[in-house]
Amino acid sequence: MDIGARNLGADAQFPSEKIAELSYRYRTLGLGYANIGGLLMSLGLPYDSDEGRALCGAITALMTGTSYATSAEIASELGPFPGYADNADHMLRVIRNHRRAAWGEDDGYEGLKTRPVPLDIECCQDQALAVAAGAAWDRALELGEMHGYRNAQSTVIAPTGTIGLVMDCDTTGIEPDFALVKFKKLAGGGYFKIINRIVPQALDVLGYEADEVRDIINYAVGHGTLLRPRISIMIA
């Protein structure tokens, strides 16, 4: 974060003069994450569940709040981004609204016609993470009010398709795994099927015995589906 926030606009190259000018004026960053789907699978949490959304929201809030706090710390030494003075009131309002959402507040939002969905702290299985997320936004607001921010934007939700493969992630950005069973092309020709390596871990977390895990994996790899396995499936 520190290197990117300090150097953005100084050494980067851009496709047009206008984009270069805006990048320098606002110093936008795109920090993000990959493998959220894999994390939820490894914890035995359904992707489309209140618990899964709460954990993902807490991680996102912690990442973004911390990055804005760091941006404000850098601004204390190097000054805020060039366009900050013209947008300070609006940006601080946005930060305050994010802070309210991170603490799970239902009202009090400023200048919004559509109420955001706040972090569901009670549904987050890692309470320390949820509290840390709110504290990160406390610090981001406190430091921002004193120093402004070095970056108008700090994070973004991106597919991370290429970098996710390089990092050997089981899933890419925020999306779930596109398939439990995948086909791998062999250098000498032909294919073989492999199951997502998170599946055995997830089944173990959900309480399946070793022989049950083996049967489920063999069935999925052999038939390309988890429907109608030879053993009963527990619903967590």
Rank of each mutant, 00 (worst) to 15 (best):
T114W: 15
R115A: 14
R115H: 07
P116A: 11
P116S: 12
V117I: 04
V117D: 14
V117H: 13
P118G: 04
L119N: 02
D120S: 09
D120L: 05
D120Y: 10
E122W: 13
E122K: 11
E122A: 11
Q125W: 10
D126R: 01
D126Y: 08
D126P: 02
Q127W: 03
A128P: 03
A128R: 06
A130P: 11
V131H: 15
V131P: 00
V131Y: 07
A133W: 00
A133F: 01
G134V: 02
D138V: 04
D138Q: 10
D138L: 04
D138E: 04
D138T: 03
D138A: 05
R139W: 01
R139L: 09
R139H: 05
A140F: 11
A140P: 00
L141A: 11
E142W: 14
L143F: 03
L143D: 03
L143S: 09
G144D: 01
E145I: 07
E145K: 14
M146Y: 06
H147P: 05
H147S: 09
G148C: 09
Y149K: 06
N151S: 14
S154G: 13
S154P: 00
T155P: 06
T155A: 09
T155I: 12
V156H: 08
V156L: 00
V156W: 14
V156F: 07
I157L: 05
P159W: 02
P159Y: 08
G161L: 13
T162D: 13
I163V: 11
I163Y: 02
G164W: 05
G164C: 06
G164Y: 00
L165K: 15
V166A: 15
V166L: 11
V166Q: 06
M167T: 06
D168K: 05
C169P: 10
T172R: 14
T172N: 10
T172V: 07
I174T: 09
I174E: 03
I174R: 05
I174N: 15
E175I: 04
E175T: 08
E175P: 05
E175A: 12
E175D: 09
E175R: 06
P176K: 01
D177P: 11
A179V: 02
A179Q: 14
L180S: 12
V181G: 08
K182E: 08
K182M: 15
K184W: 07
K185P: 11
G190I: 08
Y191V: 14
Y191P: 09
F192I: 14
F192G: 04
I194W: 12
I195C: 15
N196H: 14
N196S: 00
R197I: 13
R197A: 12
I198L: 03
